[in-house]
């Protein structure tokens, strides 16, 4: 391969550097502000700080002291973990069913799945269904209405369809049931797509605030995304009682940025663990053999 000329290399380097800086700087200011004390924030005219000269972890201490944020964090983790596992299980079963040639009822079901991708039932019908199921103010209202995503089903079905047909035939000759084939052959071969789809689901569960806003009436049951929206986006004042602070409260901006960090970091942590599968998974369908 021909080595690019130094000038071209320099231009590429600068372009990449600018891109990285544009991505890193906002993150950095958020993190720096979350560690800044009142004096530093006031010295920056009440705005974001680039370097927390007055470094303090008081915002994190206050937020993790047993108030609404701590509770929301636990709720979000539980909803995300339970929701993602259930979503993956149901999506895998559905995709497997739809990928099997001649499976009973697969055609109308595929139509329904595609219909759900193309047409959304809308806010009010969804609300009525959740209400009639008696799920208002219930954690299941954050999982059940969004448990299966049609797009994810179609992606997973495409992956299953590309698995060698011979594997299924030999398993059938050995007397394996459909469930055995799914669990012992298909799923172990599908780690990449499971990782990608799992990540899609997890990020969706973690970031979802709207369903919680509509269906969850008690603030005690709020997930992190709704806390983030209330205190950071809507800028509701955070009181001592809400964050479990017993002494003087850290500055509002520092608290807001700490909430933002706490709402972002857990889901970011998941990426490196899935990266190996992720790179392979997103290539699904990119190259047809």
């Amino acid at each position: 391969m021909e080595t690019p000329k130094p000038l071209v290399q320099a231009i590429k380097f600068i372009a990449l550097l600018v891109s990285v800086v544009l991505v890193i700087v906002p993150f950095w200011t958020v993190i720096a502000t979350s560690f800044a004390d009142e004096e530093t924030i006031n010295a920056n005219a009440g705005g974001m700080v680039m370097w927390p000269t007055g470094f303090t972890v008081s915002s994190y201490e206050a937020l993790l002291n047993g108030g609404v944020v701590t509770r929301a964090l636990v709720i979000s983790v539980l909803v995300t973990v339970v929701g993602t596992l259930l979503s993956l299980a149901v999506t895998a079963c559905l995709a497997y069913w739809l990928s099997r040639p001649g499976a009973l009822g697969a055609k109308p079901m595929l139509l329904l799945v595609l219909g759900s991708v193309l047409f959304s039932p809308g806010l009010i019908p969804n609300y009525l269904v959740v209400k009639e199921l008696g799920l208002l103010d219930n954690y299941w209202s954050l999982i059940l209405p969004v448990m299966v995503n049609g797009f994810n089903v179609i992606v997973m079905r495409a992956f299953f369809q590309n698995l060698p047909r011979e594997l299924f035939e030999s398993a059938a000759i050995d007397g394996a049931s459909s469930a055995t084939v799914l669990v012992k052959i298909v799923l172990p071969l599908s780690k990449a797509v499971l990782a990608v789809i799992g990540l899609f689901y997890a990020v969706a569960y973690w970031n979802a605030f709207f369903n919680a806003l509509l269906y969850i009436q008690s603030a005690d049951k709020w997930p992190m995304a709704l806390v983030l929206r209330t205190f950071v986006v809507n800028q509701t004042t955070i009181g001592g009682d809400q964050v479990g602070a017993t002494e003087a409260l850290p500055p509002q901006l520092s608290l807001q940025m700490a909430i933002l960090v706490m709402a972002t970091v857990p889901i970011l942590i998941v990426y490196p663990f899935l990266q190996k599968h992720f790179a392979k998974g997103v290539m699904i369908g990119a190259v047809k053999g």
Binding site: I124, L128, L213, L214, A219, N234, T236
Partner: peptide, 21 residues
């Protein structure tokens, strides 16, 4: 009491009204 953050009140109001409960 159902307490709704003020910025989100219009959305929740419409949904609850439409929900009929």
């Amino acid at each position: 009491l159902r307490m709704v953050p003020n910025a989100d009140y219009p959305t929740v109001f419409q949904t609850v009204i439409a929900g009929g409960d």
